[in-house]
Computed example of a mutant assay.
Amino acid sequence: MRPASHLLVNTPDIEIWPGGLLRARSNHDARALSRARHVLRRKRDGQYLAADLPEGLLALVPRLRREDGIETALFVLERLREPQRAGIDAIGELPLDRLQERLHALGLDETYAQRTGLPLVAEPTMLTLAGFDRYRRPLWLVPGAARAWRSMHAAALLDDVVLEAISGYRSHDYQLGIFERKRARGLTVEEILTVNAAPGYSEHHSGRALDIGAPGEPPAEESFENTAAFAWLRDNAPAYDFAMSYPRDNPHGIVYEPWHWAWRGA
């Protein structure tokens, strides 16, 4: 059983975060988050919904009980509150039943999978804290990937090489948000698809993949291949079951991504 203080527990619409990790966006949030054992956060837009305080649940939005998926999230929260449990036993996967809705929002259909050869990727029901990324945001991965990342990061440091995590787990809804923001900047869906997989098809959904950078280098740029960090990964990452997912001329139509590595362990 894993301690709840290091877990992000995932439900289809709402994430349950451990207290002390989320940044406050207002004085009201700051007071609640400073005392919260857990925080319920809407996956679609990151809105904080409720804080689990010692004296009970504090709603952070009006009409909390009308939120999509709130009953499921509150049921899981009750389990986390039970002293004899203090954690979640096993990792499962969330259903993929809303995938078509997300694809249709981008004008895509099932032919996308046939065209790219990318598999569907379910979200895990639980992720563990693997440290923090370049921007001091919590880095969430499934437990095996988190252990492998910490070991690989420490080994690189012994060789005077700094590996910086840029991005880890991303939900289907977060991936859809990436497309919506890029479309708002004038990019077409086809242009975005050369860099980002469609919602439901990104390895980041699995909690096994992360983007890696080096100090002083811009994130997610091909120039990363010229760094000592990339050279170290090329020579040593396989020993930790990490592999680069999108080499040059990969069959999925995704641009060369020397920064994107995924854990292939059991």
Rank of each mutant, 00 (worst) to 15 (best):
Leu60Glu: 04
Tyr48Phe: 12
Tyr246Ala: 00
Leu158Asp: 10
Leu157Asp: 13
Glu222Ile: 15
Leu94His: 13
Arg264Lys: 13
Glu225Tyr: 05
Gly216Asp: 11
Gly19Phe: 03
Val195Asn: 03
Arg137Gly: 02
Phe179Trp: 05
Tyr112Cys: 09
Glu67Phe: 14
Leu33Ala: 03
Ala231Gly: 02
Ala145His: 02
Arg66Cys: 05
Leu8Pro: 01
His172Leu: 13
Ala209Cys: 13
Ser34Pro: 14
His260Ala: 01
Ala165Cys: 10
Val76Trp: 13
Asp160Pro: 01
Leu64Gln: 05
Glu225Trp: 05
Leu94Pro: 12
Arg134Asn: 02
Arg248Val: 08
Asp249Leu: 05
Phe242Cys: 15
Gly131Ile: 01
Glu110Lys: 14
Ser5Pro: 03
Glu93Cys: 11
Tyr135Met: 15
Ala105His: 14
Ala113Arg: 05
Arg79Ser: 06
Pro215Cys: 15
Pro251Asn: 10
Arg137Met: 12
Ile212Tyr: 00
His6Ser: 11
Leu64Glu: 07
His252Tyr: 11
Arg23Phe: 07
Thr188Ile: 09
Asp249Pro: 08
Glu180Leu: 12
Asn236Glu: 12
Arg181Val: 07
Ala73Pro: 04
Pro12Phe: 09
Arg115Asn: 11
Thr111Gly: 12
Val9Lys: 01
Asp68Gly: 14
Ala229Gln: 03
Ala229Phe: 03
Arg85Phe: 08
Pro62Trp: 11
Ala214Trp: 01
Pro247Leu: 09
Thr72Cys: 09
Leu22Thr: 04
Leu158Ala: 08
Gly69Phe: 15
Ile212Leu: 07
Pro199Ala: 12
Glu222Ser: 07
Val76Cys: 05
Glu15Tyr: 14
Leu158Val: 04
Val189Arg: 01
Leu139Lys: 00
Glu190Phe: 10
Arg25Pro: 00
Ala243Lys: 05
Gly216Lys: 09
Leu40Asp: 07
Ala262Pro: 08
Gly213Gln: 03
Ala145Arg: 00
Arg147Pro: 00
Phe75Glu: 03
Ala228Met: 13
Leu187Lys: 13
Ile70Asp: 00
Glu217Phe: 06
Thr227Ile: 04
Ala239Cys: 08
Glu191Tyr: 02
Gln114Pro: 06
Ala50Tyr: 03
Ser5Asn: 10
Arg63Glu: 15
Leu96Glu: 14
Phe224Trp: 11
Glu225Ala: 06
His172Phe: 09
Gly56Lys: 04
Ala50Ser: 08
Asp45Ala: 12
Tyr201Gln: 12
Glu82Tyr: 03
Glu221Asn: 12
Val76His: 05
Ala237Phe: 00
Leu21Thr: 06
Pro247Ala: 15
Ala228Phe: 09
Tyr169Pro: 02
Arg181Trp: 13
Met1Asp: 07
Ala155Met: 08
Val195Asp: 04
Ser34Tyr: 00
Arg65Glu: 15
Leu157Pro: 08
Leu118Phe: 10
Ala197Cys: 11
Gln47Cys: 05
Asn236Thr: 09
Ile70Phe: 15
Arg183Asp: 07
Asp160Ile: 04
His260Arg: 07
Arg41Pro: 02
Glu221Val: 15
Ala197Leu: 07
Val255Gln: 14
Met126Pro: 04
Leu127Asn: 05
Leu64Tyr: 15
Met152Asn: 02
Glu123Cys: 07
Leu22Glu: 03
Ala32Gln: 02
Glu110Ser: 14
Pro218Leu: 08
Thr116His: 06
Val142Pro: 06
Leu127Lys: 03
His260Gly: 00
Leu118Glu: 11
Tyr174Cys: 10
Leu99Ser: 05
Gly207Met: 03
Ala155Leu: 09
Leu193Glu: 07
Glu55Ile: 06
Leu80Tyr: 09
